[in-house]
C-alpha cells in the first residue's frame, strides 16, 4: 500500500528552495517557477537525490559553497564534473535541469537554439573549453585543501529512499 510521505525532521524546505533558486540562476540566469520549487523539494522528500555514494563530506561542502551562486557555483560545477561526476552537487544540478526543461515557464530557455553560424558554434566551443580549464585550475586551489579537510571528518548517514507516491 502506498505511503504518504511526510517531511523528515532533517528536511529544511526553505534551504532546499534557496538551493533550487541558486541552481536555476546558475544554469539559466532566471528564477524558478513555484512548480519547479515544489517538485525540487518533493524529490528530496522522497529521498531520490541523496545516495550513499554521492553524499560524503566533500559533496556536502561543495553543495554549501555552490549555494552562494555566481562564481562560487561555477567553480563547484566545474570541479564536480571532473572529480565528483556522480556526487551530490551534480545530482542536484541535473535534477534542477530536468525540472526546468519540462516546466512551462522555463523550458524555452533550455530548448532555445540561437541559430548561430557553424563557425560561431566552434568558436563558442573553444571558448567554453578554455574557460573550463581556467576554472578547473582556479578551483583546485580551493578544493584540494577542502578535500583533505573533509577526508578527516566523519560522514553523516544517508536516509534510504522513501517508498510510495508523493
Amino acid at each position: 500500500m502506498a505511503e504518504a510521505p511526510t517531511d523528515s525532521p532533517a528536511l529544511d524546505r526553505e534551504l532546499l528552495r534557496r538551493e533550487c533558486v541558486a541552481w536555476t540562476r546558475h544554469l539559466l540566469g532566471v528564477a524558478p517557477s513555484p512548480a519547479v520549487l515544489e517538485r525540487y523539494v518533493d524529490a528530496h522528500r522522497l529521498g531520490v537525490v541523496e545516495t550513499p555514494g554521492s553524499s560524503g563530506n566533500f559533496d556536502r561542502a561543495l553543495v554549501r559553497l555552490a549555494r552562494g551562486g555566481g562564481l562560487s557555483a561555477r567553480l563547484c560545477d566545474v570541479h564536480g564534473r571532473l572529480f565528483r561526476p556522480a556526487g551530490l552537487l551534480r545530482r542536484k544540478l541535473v535534477l534542477t535541469l530536468a525540472l526546468l526543461e519540462v516546466d512551462a515557464a522555463a523550458h524555452a530557455h533550455v530548448d532555445e537554439s540561437r541559430g548561430s553560424s557553424a563557425l560561431g558554434v566552434l568558436a563558442g566551443l573553444a571558448g567554453r573549453a578554455c574557460l573550463f580549464v581556467l576554472l578547473l585550475l582556479l578551483g583546485l586551489f580551493v578544493f584540494l585543501p577542502l578535500r583533505l579537510l573533509c577526508a578527516f571528518t566523519p560522514s553523516p548517514a544517508v536516509p534510504p529512499a522513501r517508498k510510495g507516491a508523493p
Binding site: 556522480a86 541535473v94 535534477l95 516546466d103
Partner: peptide, 27 residues
C-alpha cells in the same frame, strides 16, 4: 512534445514521473 511542456499542468509528472523515475541522475 513542446506543447505538453508549454501548457499541460502535469507535464513534469508526465515526463519525469511522480517519483522522478524519468530523471537520469549521474551515475
Amino acid at each position: 512534445f513542446a506543447g505538453l511542456k508549454r501548457s499541460h499542468p502535469r507535464a513534469s509528472e508526465y515526463f519525469l514521473g511522480p517519483r522522478f523515475e524519468g530523471v537520469l541522475f549521474p551515475g
